[in-house]
Design a binder for these strands. Structure first.
Length: 336
DNA sequence: AAGCGTCCCAACCGCTTATGA
DNA sequence: CTCATAAGCGGTTGGGACGCT
């Protein structure tokens, strides 16, 4: 048995809205408001439409101050930056762009901006002798090299320049793959890492799977500053520090602090230790810590699923926010 | 002009979340 | 706490617009 329909489909008009319908809806809402009930609104407004359809029409087209037309470079930057950070959370992204709707931004991303960005990030032609600006293809074949953020000698495209001026000092390969991800999973970063994990001794799926068959997998909370503090506050210890403490959540344990495990990128022997110690890697934004805190304090199993998919069976990577630059830089040392 | 392919976006679908009884 | 209902949300798609041959 399927889901009950939200309205009687046989009695409602579907498809494009006519100017008359737009007028009726607009007039009614401006006069009476939505009344907090979209379901009953169409009848009151004299429309043969489903409430959902009315809501969508109003929110995406009719309500005041909707901005239509070309996106500015600044808007492009905001969308790209936020997409790289939080993924396809269109409503959150839209909240940062006054007058733009989530639907609009989603369409714009899918039809134009994604292509624009990929063009900008296309790897340089093979003849190039100076592709120090790291490309996605490049990092696939150069694992365990350290990533030196000071050696960029090529000139990024204007679009990349505008991106970097909006907050990223450097578009990392990791971020590139995140931006280029078209996945529908919760985190394109996660997918990018998974894909590359096949060739990465640290993130190799094989290694990971072999070591992930018990409930006490070691867990590295990979973050900095407030992340660790927040994570530490989840533990039973109360001194606020995170170093060497054990974080108990869902049967996982923290085995070391980020800083303890953060190797000097020029000394690769640290990777051996990491492989031995860390069976799971979490890149954790502060919000996920909040989730865990609220989850534990509320004694709810929610909500490491959804936004933070299935903590029990997979490498858990969520988008990197807040002090993301530091985290990404650190992560990249492993990633290579 | 006709035919075809691609692009674009408004609208839909159905899942998740919030809310209230 | 459970359940029902509505709103919110993001992925998908139908079909019109447009460009090319």
């Amino acid at each position: 048995m399927g889901r009950a329909p939200c309205c009687d489909k046989s009695n409602v008009k579907r498809g494009p809205w006519s100017p008359e319908e737009d007028g009726k809806l607009k007039e009614y809402i401006e006069k009476c408001g939505t009344g907090g009930n979209w379901i009953s609104l169409p009848q009151k407004a004299g429309l043969k439409r489903c409430g959902k359809s009315c809501r969508l029409r109003w929110l995406n087209y009719l309500r005041p101050n909707i901005k239509h037309g070309e996106f500015t470079d600044e808007e492009d930057n905001i969308i790209c930056t936020l997409f790289a950070t939080i993924g396809s959370r269109w409503s959150i992204i839209a909240a940062q762009l006054p007058g733009r709707t989530d639907n609009d931004i989603k369409n714009y991303w899918n039809t134009k901006l994604k292509k624009k960005l990929m063009m900008s990030m296309a790897p340089p032609p093979p003849s190039s002798h100076s592709h120090h600006f790291p490309s996605y293809h490049h990092h696939q074949t150069s694992h365990l090299q350290s990533y030196n953020t000071t050696t960029t000698t090529t000139t990024p495209s204007p679009f990349i320049k505008s991106l970097t001026s909006s907050g990223f000092d450097m578009i990392s390969p990791l971020l590139q793959s995140n931006l280029m991800g078209t996945t529908t999973t919760n985190s394109s970063l996660f997918q990018a890492l998974q894909e590359d994990g096949n060739n990465n001794p640290f993130l190799s799926n094989k290694h990971y799977n072999n070591n992930n068959n018990n409930n006490n997998s070691n867990l590295l909370v990979f973050g900095s500053g407030s992340h660790e503090a927040a994570a530490a506050s989840c533990s039973s210890n109360s001194d606020g520090s995170f170093g060497g403490q054990q974080l108990s959540y869902g049967g996982y344990q923290t085995v070391a602090t980020t800083t303890q495990l953060m190797p000097d990128p020029h000394h690769h022997h640290h990777h051996q230790n990491l492989e031995e110690q860390v069976k799971q890697l979490i890149v954790m934004p502060s919000t996920s810590c909040d989730d865990i805190i609220s989850s534990s304090s509320n004694n709810k199993k929610k909500n490491c699923s959804g936004e933070y998919p299935d903590i029990n069976n997979t490498l858990l990577i969520s988008s990197v926010v807040d002090d993301n630059k530091a985290v990404q830089e650190k992560l990249m040392y492993y990633y290579y």
